[in-house]
Every structure is written in structure tokens, then in C-alpha cells.
């Protein structure tokens, strides 16, 4: 079967950043903890491919190390969303129409009224800013997203014959959810996971940018942009390259999500 071009392009783009982040654990062009004030705010050159920042740190190296923070925060947040959202959605679908379903779905609507930024504000007001709090805020935001997708996918499966057969065979709702429903909605979850991964990258950058996420000296793409802001007239490259990193990573994940959806669900292909 032929893979969609968007899937290949998107996967390649995002994989490149994951790879950059992984490489940064063993090697970066320059040490990001060493400051070199004499060589600060240099434009791109052969020595520093993407230039240096206001402390003379190599921007390429910073982007590599920052990739860890962005990708790590976004991935763990997707994990939190799935770990809580999927069981909730399965549980709601198994009790469809009942009060449990109603309570879970209304609870979902409630969480939707709190954008991640507002969640982050609430968390930070109590515990102070950190990457962990950013993970919590984005993770909580992800829970109702996965609960909704899971419930929606599961509801249509519950009416199908093979589920009926499993019920006749004496399996309870829990076992049916785990053995028959879940494997059949994995496609949906993978696609949604990719989308939330990309949303997570943007939110992490935004939270770090306003100072609610990763704190110095932990490099993150959002923090790099915040640092560059007052110097944007003097050293535009400080703002342009970290921003491009975010755009390319998010674009890659979005393309991958679209490609995966088309690939995994052939019915959608004719829609495009």
C-alpha cells in the first residue's frame, strides 16, 4: 500500500527534530552552559551556523537542547491525556445513555472551559512556574480531548455485531471495552495523539514564552523567543531560528497527523 506523501514528509520533519534532541544528549556543536559575552549576538556564520544569542551561546546548540524540553513536555502531556482520557471515554461509552456517561461528559465540558493557559496560571499561582507544571496544565487539557474521541469511536462500535457476539458469549462491559473496542479505536487514538503532540509543542512554547513553563537555565524554544524579544531589532536571527524550529516541528506533526488519518481511514481519501 502506498503511503501518502504528507505522511512521509511530516514524519521526516518531526523525526529530524526528535533526532536533533536525542543527539544533543551526547553532542552539541557548542556547550550551551558556557557563556561567551565577547561573541554575543553574532549573525549566522561558518562557526555558528545559526548565530549566537545575547550571552554568546550557539543558537543551533540551544535549539537542539531545547527540542528535548519541547518534545518531552508535549509527549508526556499526550501520555497523561491518554492514560486518563481513554479509560474515561471507554467507561462512558460502556454506560452510554446512563448517568455515569452524563457525568463524565459534563465533566469534560467543564475542563474544556479552562484553556491550558488558564490551567497553567492556576497551577503556577500555587506552585510556581516549571516545566512539570506546564506538563500538568497541557496534560489536564488533553484528558477531555481523548475522552471525547474514545467515547465517540466506541459508541459506534457498541452497536456492531461482533460486540453483540462477545456479549452473548458472556463477556462483561469491561472485557469487551479492553478486548474488542480499544483495538478498533487505536487508529483514531494514534491520529489524535499526533494532533495533541503538535498542540502540546505550541502550548509548551507559549507557556515558556510567558514565563509559566521551563525556567532558566533549562533551554526551551519558547524561552529563547522570550529572550530574543527585546533584541529583535539588533539580532533578528535570535527570534527567527527558534521560531522556525517550532513551525517546522508543528508543521511536520500536523502533516503526519493528516497523512496518518488518510492512510488509516480509507473512507476519508475520497473526501480530499
Amino acid at each position: 500500500m502506498k503511503l501518502p506523501a504528507t505522511l512521509i514528509l511530516g514524519a521526516a520533519l518531526s523525526a529530524a527534530f526528535v533526532l536533533l534532541g536525542l543527539i544533543s544528549f551526547v553532542w552539541t556543536p557548542y556547550d550551551v552552559t558556557v557563556l561567551n559575552v565577547a561573541g554575543r549576538m553574532q549573525g549566522p556564520s561558518a562557526d555558528h551556523l545559526l548565530g549566537t544569542d545575547h550571552f554568546g551561546r550557539d543558537i543551533l546548540s540551544m535549539i537542539m537542547v531545547g527540542a528535548r524540553t519541547s518534545i518531552g513536555v508535549a509527549l508526556v502531556s499526550v501520555g497523561i491525556g491518554m492514560a486518563f482520557g481513554v479509560p474515561l471515554g471507554l467507561f462512558a461509552a460502556a454506560n452510554r445513555g446512563g448517568w455515569v456517561d452524563e457525568v463524565i461528559m459534563r465533566g469534560n465540558d467543564m475542563v474544556f472551559a479552562f484553556p491550558p493557559l488558564v490551567l497553567a496560571i492556576l497551577i503556577t499561582a500555587n506552585f510556581g512556574p516549571s516545566a512539570v507544571n506546564a506538563i500538568l496544565a497541557i496534560g489536564i487539557f488533553n484528558i477531555p480531548v481523548f475522552a471525547r474521541v474514545t467515547r465517540g469511536g466506541a459508541l459506534s462500535l457498541w452497536t456492531l455485531d461482533f460486540v453483540m457476539a462477545a456479549r452473548v458469549a458472556g463477556k462483561g462491559p469491561g472485557r469487551i471495552s479492553a478486548e474488542h473496542i480499544l483495538p478498533n479505536i487505536l487508529n483514531l487514538l494514534i491520529v489524535q495523539g499526533t494532533i495533541q503532540f503538535s498542540v502540546g509543542i505550541i502550548f509548551e512554547a507559549a507557556l515558556s514564552y510567558v514565563g509559566l513553563g521551563a525556567q532558566p537555565p533549562v533551554p526551551s524554544w519558547g524561552r529563547m523567543l522570550a529572550d530574543s524579544q527585546t533584541m529583535i531589532g539588533l539580532a533578528p536571527h535570535m527570534a527567527i531560528f527558534p521560531g522556525l524550529a517550532i513551525v517546522l516541528m508543528v508543521l511536520g506533526l500536523n502533516l503526519m497527523g493528516d497523512g496518518l488519518r488518510d492512510h488509516l481511514d480509507p473512507r476519508l481519501r475520497r473526501m480530499r
Partner: peptide
């Protein structure tokens, strides 16, 4: 629109400042 969805708003804002203000 695919590109527009990938651009963080605060970065776009900084780029707009760079072009139209500075």
C-alpha cells in the same frame, strides 16, 4: 492554512513587529 496552523501566534507577532514596526 496548513502553514498558518503551525505558526505560534506570539512568534508571528514578533515577526510582524520586525517587519511593520522596526
Amino acid at each position: 492554512t496548513q502553514l498558518g496552523m503551525a505558526v505560534p501566534n506570539f512568534w508571528f507577532a514578533m515577526i510582524l513587529v520586525l517587519i511593520f514596526a522596526i
